[in-house]
Simulated scan of single mutants.
Amino acid sequence: MATRIPTFPAAQQAQIIRAHQRDVIHASSLREQTENILRAWLGTRWLARYDKEVELFVKLGYYSLTTGRAIQTLGEEYTDIWSHPSRARMPRVQAGLIVLPALHGYLLSRSGHLLPSRFEHLKTLTRFIFGSLEVLSEVNLAVFYLRGTYYDLVRRALRIPHISAVPEDSHTRPPSYSLLGVLIMIRLAHRLISFLRKRASKPSSSAISSRGKAPEEDEPHLDTRPVSSLLNLPDAESDPAIRAEDDELTVLDIASLSPEVRAGRTCTLCLEERTASCVTECGHVFDWSCIYGWGREKSECPLCRQSLDLTRLLPIYNL
């Protein structure tokens, strides 16, 4: 009599979603602890400059120690699901599951800084590629909510589904998330229609040349330049830290100040003497580089927790 090989059921949508949420929580906790250590060693200024690299390092480390060893992540262990073993143990597949999701987010956040300003066409192409990947990810998420197989785009491309260690119960009906998939599809359809209408209403180049200048002033537009370039101040992610004596954005003679006065010019974020000082709407003074890096992550003052708007920061040259 032939021996029947046991099979495992496919993981349910709820199990996959909970596993993903738990992995995000554990990766965020690991990142927070890493940032606390690096902040104590290297300072807030360094951490604000390399926060995206720290996030990339943490994600690569977390999934290398789990997926890279062909074992469950903490989220998968929490919901008793596994990556399908037929392909999940292949080294190339493991490398793809580790590198591609983390690298996509990092390149998306750093694409504007990694390429020099003279490569404007390459920047435009890069933004188009990442924008297309974002749309494909949303389409994949909608398909997941409708069919419940591949939660992220990388697993769909590599054909790595999840299986469950929990036997199916024929007496219970698993929850359905199809409504979320329909809503995502409706949102994508609205974005597509808006894009097509915008392209149709945009005047052609020949019409612009025949009429002269296009009426740009009558059409609303979004200024995508960073605040640092508008205020002509250093960007925390691109410029190195400077000494207070070399700060061209302060009219004070720093060298002639007494040590007591200079001790009162400390930035409460990096605990160093302020350079390119600016004040928030709530009246607190920081380094431009420190408060700019903080404001990109949290829209609140680090001291009083009031709302922080980077476009409303006021430069101070004599304090």
Rank of each mutant, 00 (worst) to 15 (best):
T79Y: 02
A88V: 02
G105F: 09
G68K: 12
H113V: 10
G75Y: 05
A102V: 06
G131E: 09
H84Y: 10
T73N: 08
V93R: 11
Q94P: 00
W82S: 02
R118D: 08
R69T: 06
L114G: 01
F130D: 01
G112D: 14
K123G: 09
T73H: 05
K123L: 06
T66H: 15
H84S: 10
P91F: 10
F130K: 06
E77C: 01
R127F: 11
G68P: 04
A102Q: 05
G68T: 10
I71Y: 03
D80R: 15
L107I: 10
R110I: 01
K123D: 00
R110H: 03
P116M: 10
F130G: 01
R127H: 15
L125M: 11
Y78P: 00
T67M: 04
A102K: 10
A102S: 15
F119T: 03
T73G: 12
S117T: 11
P101N: 07
T66W: 05
L125C: 09
Y106C: 01
R69K: 15
H113D: 13
F128I: 03
Q72I: 02
P101D: 05
H121P: 00
P116G: 10
G131I: 06
S109L: 09
L122R: 08
P101K: 06
I81Y: 07
Y106R: 04
R127Y: 13
S83Q: 15
A102R: 09
F128Q: 12
F128M: 08
V93N: 12
G131Q: 11
L122T: 13
H84K: 04
L97D: 03
P116I: 05
F119Q: 13
G96P: 02
H84P: 00
E120G: 04
L103G: 01
L108E: 11
I129T: 15
P85T: 03
Y78E: 10
R89P: 00
P85R: 09
S86W: 07
L100R: 04
L125K: 13
V99W: 15
P91Y: 09
S83A: 10
S111A: 12
P85Q: 07
L107N: 03
E77K: 12
S86Y: 10
